[in-house]
């Protein structure tokens, strides 16, 4: 693909333009704000002040790593099972996975507030069978649950798409050559599905680590993540510079973790999403 034809360039042009206007330029603006003071003069103070936020970066990463791992553990077997079903069943399962994505994250999260509340749906049901109410909302578990719930489709879909492309004859060959089901999984399916896993992890980790709405609503305003601090800086304190510095560092952290993951996953994969 080194020598792109004229036609290929023409076809790619609209997206290149789109990316330049809506991705590259905004990134440059973020960088500009991060390194300037309100008067527009160059400064490193915004970056230096970030040392106050060490804990919050650490916590945001822990929350989103846990959420990503849970999503992976749930999604991987599901995607495998789904990819081995009849065509018709696969389509139904696909719709079920996508259905929540058709609703706004705001509405989904707001609904979960009502379900997880002290006198919410879960606790009312528990009360009916004589179980003491649980503290669900306002806990780290609620926030992690919200992340898993909202982003798990982004884990299932890429893994499923890779798995459904595994040629059944490859699996048959593994069996013919004496692979048990365990070794078939570890030596054939897992390596072949790795690109999907890497994409899935990326697509769950990135929105989780930068979320603010889920933590605000399901954390009862007590659990603060980087996204919340950024939102507060921009909306409440009108401090674009500090907000931009936080965003910039968050982006660098995300890029670093993606690079690290690519290293582990092995290079040269024809990966669609990373």
């Amino acid at each position: 693909m080194k020598n792109r034809s004229f036609l290929q360039r023409i076809i790619g042009a609209p997206y290149v333009l789109w990316a330049a206007i809506f991705i590259v330029v905004p990134l440059l603006i973020v960088a500009y704000y991060a390194f300037t003071d309100p008067a527009g003069a160059f400064t490193l103070d915004n970056i230096r002040n970030l040392t106050d936020y060490g804990t919050i970066f650490r916590e945001s990463i822990v929350y989103s790593v846990v959420a990503t791992l849970i999503a992976l553990v749930l999604a991987y077997p599901f995607a495998y099972v789904m990819s081995r079903k009849r065509e018709k069943t696969q389509q139904i399962m696909m719709v079920l996975v996508m259905l929540p994505m058709w609703m706004s994250l705001l509405i989904l999260t707001y609904s979960w507030m009502g379900i997880l509340e002290r006198n919410g749906i879960i606790n009312s049901l528990l009360a009916k069978i004589g179980v003491a109410p649980l503290n669900l909302i306002g806990t780290p578990a609620a926030v992690i649950f919200g992340m898993v719930y909202n982003y798990i489709p982004y884990m299932i879909l890429p893994i499923y798409s890779v798995m459904s492309k595994i040629d059944p004859s490859v699996l048959e060959a593994a069996e013919d050559l004496g692979s048990g089901s365990a070794s078939k999984l570890y030596r054939v399916i897992l390596p072949l599905s790795m690109p999907g896993v890497v994409s899935g992890i990326t697509m769950v980790f990135v929105p989780s680590v930068s979320t603010f709405y889920i933590s605000q609503k399901l954390g009862d305003g007590k659990i603060l993540l980087v996204g919340d601090v950024i939102e507060r800086q921009i909306q409440a304190q009108n401090n674009y510079n500090a907000g931009a510095a936080l965003s910039l560092v968050l982006m660098v952290l995300i890029v670093l973790s993606l690079a690290l993951m690519k290293l582990f996953a092995g290079e040269g994969d024809d990966n669609l999403y990373v």
């Binding site: 507030m113 909302i137 306002g138 609503k217 009862d220 305003g221 007590k222």
Partner: peptide, 9 residues
């Protein structure tokens, strides 16, 4: 002692 910090909730 706080259960949470809320606005419209």
């Amino acid at each position: 002692v706080l259960q949470g910090r809320v606005m419209d909730q």
